[in-house]
Amino acid sequence: MQQIDAQITPLPRLDDEPTFNEAWQAQVLAIAQNLVAQGTIAADDWSNALGAALRELQVDAESDTVENYYQAALNALETVLQVNCGVSKQVMDQRKSDWTRAYETTPHGQSVKL
């Protein structure tokens, strides 16, 4: 794996930061762990996909952040769903567009539904 310079990353300083900065970060792990727990995806497959996604990010000392970690986790989840669960990228993109449109066209104050 890539190597990160010692001087620029004061690890213990991250100790007291919250584990999740945004709800979607927790939801990514929740979906992945639910799928692993019920045997839909193998723990190894998830671990390997996450490892590959983290490598792909090619972080340096500055981008070695929690935000990027969860970005990799989301990429990994999308990959696992494509490879192991038959969910195509096209279907994911379409559903994301549907939600975007729903948010943009739902008047303020009303719940957003597809």
Partner: peptide, 13 residues
């Protein structure tokens, strides 16, 4: 963007 992607995944699943 990531929140929408997760929302998409969850509703599909």
């Amino acid at each position: 963007d990531p929140a929408l992607r997760v929302k998409a995944l969850e509703t599909i699943l």
